[in-house]
Design a binder for these strands. Structure first.
Length: 438
RNA sequence: GCGGGAGUAGCUCAGUUGGUUAGAGCGUCUGUUUGUGGCACAGAAGGCCGUGGGUUCAAGUCCCAUCUCUCGCCCCA
């Protein structure tokens, strides 16, 4: 029995060409969020299992978390998300941090479940969080940052939709306006979450099954359907529209619209699961039908830092998964062809390995990325290898070059070939790289 | 955890109602001589047909089981 070469189920190998894509995506994200003043942090991949039990549903922790006992008998988990960790970090230094905090990270996360399109067991997730601002300027900023990331990749507004809702609004709607008890409200909320996946009649049947006969007689299902069909906050019943959370939501939408973010809209069917969100929630969807998934989700979670026994801190943030982001970029042809960072491939001709070291070192000292071919290969093969590696320049070093201190530089894309000094070569390559950038 | 689809060369796949030594394209390697690649030509390597059992004179092909991958469901941090 031989060893497998395939990676662990639901996890990916990143060969250099794939790692380049990931680096490009993460570098673009980092650059964008840093424009807004966000700073990178990180934390261990292992956390005490308790950290997740405190705020997440039983099923998620028990069945979808990699959890085990360490050698000291402590129950630990591989982090399935970053939000509890960052809340822990903030709580630990609650008194000494300078608010507002603008923090981001790109951790790898693990969840134990069956892989499917857009969802693997290991993925990387951009986490962007803003701590310490209570008002809607935080909502406006965090959604603007999310939007800026998509714009930084060259996405058009028609390619993605930003959907907003309010958890407080939905709580009021289900318990006060429709008069459902907690269990019913929870079940209906889950149903709403996936209503776009089912037929209307199917939704009605399932909704009726959740409600009591009396509620059905009183037309609660019809009232639910009516309210779920609305497209703007203006259509909400007057009593609901006057809620502070709705006024705030309208204000955020107005600010976004004035900022040119025209693809942000109210969506009363947006639920965002059932976890720690306390007020506004939002998601970004791919408008491409083949990738009809939430790529990014977030919202306000004012209560999480307080779980660590300190005064709560108002917080809003979002997460953006690398798998769904890459699917998005691919389906909209937004992934550039990213070159190897190696700029020159040195082809040695003849017995010059030792004497070629000096010019090679000088090139590196001047900042070029230089790979040297294996000795003893024919020059034609060395061209082939350089081409296959995607390196555009081959530098030929033989007896002749070393004697004259003029080296043969060949652009294997154009086929042009000339002899130059090392300084001239550096300048040619640097100019070429600038012109060749994405 | 539940369901659909698929496993044949490194990759993408063909393989007739079961019938001799298993096929193509791409890729890899070698050569068409000596410091010039891509193109072309010639050649080579590379398969327990996912694994185990069964039916049959005969199984890549049919049946059962199992494993893996994949798409969905559940769930979604």
């Amino acid at each position: 029995m031989s060893l497998q070469t395939t990676p662990y189920k639901g996890a990916r190998d990143f060969y250099p060409e794939e790692k380049r894509i990931q680096n490009y995506m993460f570098d673009t994200v980092k650059h964008t969020v840093e424009l807004y003043g966000y700073e990178e942090y990180d934390a261990p991949i292992l956390e005490p299992l308790d950290l997740y039990l405190a705020k997440t549903g039983e099923e998620i922790v028990n069945e979808q978390t990699y959890a085990f006992e360490d050698r000291g008998g402590r129950k630990v988990a591989i982090r399935p998300e970053m939000t509890p960790t960052v809340s822990r970090m903030v709580a630990a230094k609650r008194q000494e941090l300078a608010y507002p905090l603008r923090w981001y990270s790109i951790p790898n996360l693990w969840r134990y479940e069956r892989p499917q399109r857009g969802r693997l067991r290991e993925h990387w997730q951009v986490n962007v969080d803003l701590f310490g601002i209570e008002g809607i300027s935080a909502e406006f900023e965090i959604i603007s940052v999310a939007d800026a990331i998509f714009k930084a990749f060259g996405a058009q507004r028609s390619m993605y939709a930003i959907r907003l809702n309010s958890r407080k609004l939905m709580d009021y709607l289900l318990s006060e306006y429709l008069g459902l008890d907690d269990a019913e409200a929870g079940a209906i909320a889950k149903l709403i979450d996936r209503m776009h996946k089912m037929e209307r009649a199917d939704f009605v049947t399932k909704a009726e099954a959740i409600m009591t006969p009396l509620e059905r007689e009183n037309g609660v299902v019809e009232r639910l359907l009516d309210i779920l069909s609305i497209k703007t906050t203006k259509e909400l019943p007057e009593i609901i529209r006057a809620l502070p959370t709705v006024l705030e939501l309208e204000h955020v939408l107005k600010l976004l619209d004035e900022a040119g973010i025209s693809n942000a809209n109210f969506d009363i069917t947006l639920m965002r699961g059932f976890d720690y969100y306390t007020d506004l929630v939002f998601e970004i969807f791919d408008t491409d039908q083949d990738n009809n998934r939430s790529m990014m989700g977030g919202g306000r979670y004012d209560g999480l830092v307080g779980l660590f026994g300190v005064e709560p801190i108002p917080t809003i943030g979002f997460g953006l998964g690398d798998v769904t982001l890459q699917n998005f970029l691919r389906s909209h042809h937004l992934l550039p062809n990213i070159q190897t960072p190696t700029q020159i491939y040195v082809a040695l001709v003849g017995e010059v390995f030792a004497s070629a070291q000096k010019p090679i070192t000088e090139l590196r000292d001047m900042g070029l990325n230089v790979a040297v071919s294996a000795p003893g290969k024919k020059i034609g093969d060395q061209f082939k290898i350089a081409q296959k590696k995607g390196i555009h320049y081959v530098l030929i070093i033989g007896e002749d070059e070393i004697q004259n201190e003029l080296f043969t530089l060949k652009n294997i894309v154009s086929g042009e070939e000339e002899k130059h000094s090392l300084e001239r070569i550096v300048s040619i390559i640097n100019d070429y790289r600038i012109n060749d950038s994405y």
